[in-house]
Measured scan of single mutants.
Amino acid sequence: MAAAAAAGAGPEMVRGQVFDVGPRYTNLSYIGEGAYGMVCSAYDNVNKVRVAIKKISPFEHQTYCQRTLREIKILLRFRHENIIGINDIIRAPTIEQMKDVYIVQDLMETDLYKLLKTQHLSNDHICYFLYQILRGLKYIHSANVLHRDLKPSNLLLNTTCDLKICDFGLARVADPDHDHTGFLTEYVATRWYRAPEIMLNSKGYTKSIDIWSVGCILAEMLSNRPIFPGKHYLDQLNHILGILGSPSQEDLNCIINLKARNYLLSLPHKNKVPWNRLFPNADSKALDLLDKMLTFNPHKRIEVEQALAHPYLEQYYDPSDEPIAEAPFKFDMELDDLPKEKLKELIFEETARFQPGYRS
């Protein structure tokens, strides 16, 4: 834990890192770190609560700039109880001085990944967590956004079992017609939660990839272990087919990539493993919904509104309290091709509203 900075004593240090967030945020305490930044909790002297502050230093890398800009653009436009918001952003007053960006968010005690390492969940908890994931996802999908990296560590939890989806750095506007060349190379989302079509096709992607990830998360809540822990690309596919069985001819016809289709045709026939054999203690309604989410063919996979209306979630289902976005989200430009200098300018502009004396 960093010592509390005395008023006016300059930035606090946390594990050798400068955290320049005073005077409003003090009493910093280390939480963890990701690929390009550290997260601390801090005391907000204005709202009198502890908050989470993520320090991001992305400006050396085009990919990190892209992810940072995506996350900020999306989260500043989203407003939903099951999606983490941005409360404040701290950065230098000029673009030349801006080396880091500090993002202030609600402090959540833990995440689903940490929880599943230590606790076996009751059916009631599984049901409530799944409902909140789908409630947040309904809003995301209504904005025409794909999260693309749903996994237990991106689901934040607090002691009252509130759940918030975080990390929109890989999110995209849904565009089933656009052929994202190089899709697989830039697709760094965790393999275990990846839909089979991501490994088999490169053309376009749809909201059904997020539903697949939610199915993987439900299976993990039922058993405290990942359902498809593939060691590499082909191993991942083999794990999936080992449980779902061989795809039907109709399902194979959806695979545009001939090499991928021929690979699947070359494999020995596998039978589907019954879900109640894998999860003998699970609620039968939970397994019915799991089956509809972990469907090989993305066109037959359940959609988020149908999933919310499934009998497993009937005690929570309330369409009048499951809000959607006001308007579909649009990125003005494809960020993939922009140089990091341009992305830095866009991050600077996007964060201006939090600067003292800002006038829109």
Results as ranks from 00 to 15, higher is better:
239 H>I: 05
289 L>K: 04
203 K>D: 05
263 Y>D: 07
292 K>A: 12
25 Y>N: 01
217 I>H: 01
331 F>E: 08
2 A>I: 15
180 H>A: 06
36 Y>T: 12
307 A>K: 08
155 L>A: 08
327 A>T: 09
82 N>S: 07
140 I>R: 02
44 D>T: 13
56 I>T: 12
351 T>C: 12
142 S>K: 14
129 F>T: 13
185 T>H: 04
54 K>L: 05
231 K>G: 04
279 F>L: 00
337 D>C: 15
240 I>L: 02
39 V>G: 06
341 E>H: 14
254 C>W: 09
200 L>M: 00
286 A>E: 12
167 D>W: 09
300 K>N: 00
136 G>C: 07
100 D>M: 14
113 Y>G: 09
308 L>D: 05
275 W>C: 00
160 T>S: 00
152 P>C: 09
12 E>C: 10
291 D>P: 09
184 L>K: 05
243 I>Q: 10
203 K>A: 04
154 N>C: 03
330 K>Q: 08
119 Q>M: 11
197 E>C: 07
47 N>F: 07
35 A>L: 03
84 I>T: 15
81 E>Y: 13
83 I>L: 08
292 K>N: 01
304 V>D: 01
272 K>A: 13
349 E>F: 15
232 H>K: 11
94 T>V: 09
185 T>D: 02
168 F>W: 03
37 G>R: 00
205 Y>S: 01
39 V>F: 02
222 L>G: 01
349 E>H: 14
195 A>S: 01
106 D>S: 13
175 D>Q: 04
199 M>H: 01
312 Y>P: 04
307 A>V: 08
151 K>A: 03
76 L>M: 05
85 G>Q: 13
241 L>W: 05
343 L>H: 07
130 L>P: 01
195 A>I: 06
309 A>W: 14
307 A>M: 10
16 G>H: 09
181 T>L: 04
54 K>A: 03
129 F>L: 00
94 T>G: 11
317 Y>D: 12
154 N>Q: 02
131 Y>K: 15
307 A>G: 08
271 N>L: 14
115 L>Q: 00
201 N>W: 07
312 Y>A: 12
218 L>E: 02
225 R>E: 12
44 D>F: 08
178 H>A: 07
311 P>L: 02
80 H>N: 06
322 E>G: 12
195 A>N: 10
160 T>W: 08
222 L>A: 03
6 A>K: 13
135 R>K: 11
251 D>G: 03
357 G>F: 15
43 Y>I: 13
241 L>T: 10
256 I>K: 08
26 T>R: 10
205 Y>C: 03
266 S>E: 12
126 I>P: 06
82 N>V: 11
201 N>I: 00
353 R>W: 14
354 F>Y: 02
55 K>W: 04
349 E>L: 14
216 C>R: 02
243 I>V: 09
79 R>A: 13
70 R>G: 07
162 D>G: 10
42 A>L: 13
204 G>S: 12
73 K>C: 03
146 L>I: 13
47 N>W: 06
279 F>V: 03
30 Y>F: 01
293 M>Q: 03
317 Y>E: 15
255 I>E: 09
52 A>F: 04
206 T>Y: 04
205 Y>M: 01
144 N>C: 07
315 Q>I: 13
38 M>K: 00
305 E>Q: 13
141 H>I: 10
251 D>C: 11
117 K>D: 11
293 M>V: 10
8 G>T: 12
221 M>C: 11
9 A>K: 13
329 F>T: 13
308 L>A: 13
346 L>R: 14
327 A>I: 15
78 F>A: 14
279 F>E: 05
153 S>L: 04
332 D>G: 02
275 W>V: 09
243 I>P: 04
6 A>G: 09
184 L>W: 03
318 D>T: 15
356 P>R: 13
